[in-house]
Structure formats: C-alpha cells, structure tokens
Simulated scan of single mutants.
Amino acid sequence: MSIPDPDPRPQPPIEPALEDCCGSGCPNCIFDVYQMLLANYKEALAAWEVRHPEAVEKPGQE
C-alpha cells in the first residue's frame, strides 16, 4: 500500500464546452466560474512550484 503524496501538484480545472452554458446570462456563468477556478489553480501551482523547485521544467529540458 502506497502513502498518498501530502502535497500533490495542483490539477487544472476542466474547461467547460460551449454547449455547457445555458445562455441565459446567469450571474455565476459556468465560464465565469471556470475563470475563477483557473486563476486559483495558477496561484496554487505557482506556490506548489516554489515548494517543489525540482519539479519545475526548465526551458530546453525535455
């Protein structure tokens, strides 16, 4: 049995498809929510990369 990673890499939110929007002008449109989740993800990823510099891919390092 493996021990779960106590600090896993953040995962990006799933981008909604165009047909996922109802088109009624909701105050919390699925695309607005996605943009908020994406901003939160980018912030969390940047913080995670500071804690895990060995995991950050450098240019030309493939």
Rank of each mutant, 00 (worst) to 15 (best):
M1C: 08
S2R: 10
I3F: 12
I3W: 13
I3A: 05
P4F: 14
P4G: 03
P4I: 05
D5H: 15
D5R: 08
D5Q: 10
D5L: 05
P6E: 11
P6K: 06
D7F: 13
D7Q: 05
P8Q: 03
P8N: 01
R9N: 06
R9I: 11
P10F: 13
P10K: 04
Q11P: 01
Q11F: 12
P12C: 02
P12I: 06
P12F: 14
P13M: 02
P13L: 02
I14N: 01
I14V: 15
E15G: 06
E15S: 04
P16N: 02
P16M: 01
P16E: 08
P16A: 00
P16V: 04
A17K: 15
A17E: 15
A17V: 09
L18V: 08
L18T: 10
D20I: 04
D20E: 15
D20S: 06
D20H: 15
D20C: 05
C21F: 08
C21Q: 04
C21N: 04
C22A: 01
C22G: 11
G23H: 09
G23E: 06
G23P: 11
S24A: 10
S24M: 15
S24Y: 14
S24H: 14
S24D: 12
G25R: 00
G25E: 08
G25N: 05
C26P: 09
C26K: 04
C26Y: 10
C26G: 02
C26F: 08
C26E: 11
N28F: 14
N28R: 10
N28E: 13
N28Q: 10
N28I: 02
N28A: 07
C29N: 09
I30P: 09
I30S: 02
I30K: 07
F31G: 00
F31S: 00
F31W: 15
D32N: 12
D32G: 08
V33P: 04
Y34A: 01
Y34I: 02
Y34K: 02
Y34V: 02
Y34C: 02
Q35V: 02
Q35K: 09
Q35S: 09
Q35A: 05
L37W: 09
L38A: 07
L38D: 05
L38W: 09
A39Q: 13
A39S: 12
A39R: 11
A39H: 11
N40H: 12
N40F: 06
N40R: 13
N40A: 14
K42I: 06
K42F: 08
K42H: 13
A44E: 13
L45H: 08
L45T: 04
A46M: 08
A46Y: 11
A46R: 15
A46P: 06
A47Y: 01
A47V: 12
A47E: 15
A47T: 07
A47W: 02
W48T: 00
W48D: 00
E49A: 03
E49I: 03
E49S: 03
E49N: 04
V50F: 11
H52E: 05
H52Y: 12
H52A: 07
P53I: 07
E54F: 07
E54S: 10
E54K: 07
E54A: 10
E54N: 11
E54L: 04
A55E: 13
A55H: 09
A55F: 04
A55G: 00
E57T: 11
E57H: 12
E57V: 14
K58P: 05
K58M: 12
K58N: 07
P59N: 05
G60Y: 13
Q61T: 07
E62H: 15
E62Q: 11
E62L: 08
E62S: 09
E62N: 12
E62W: 13
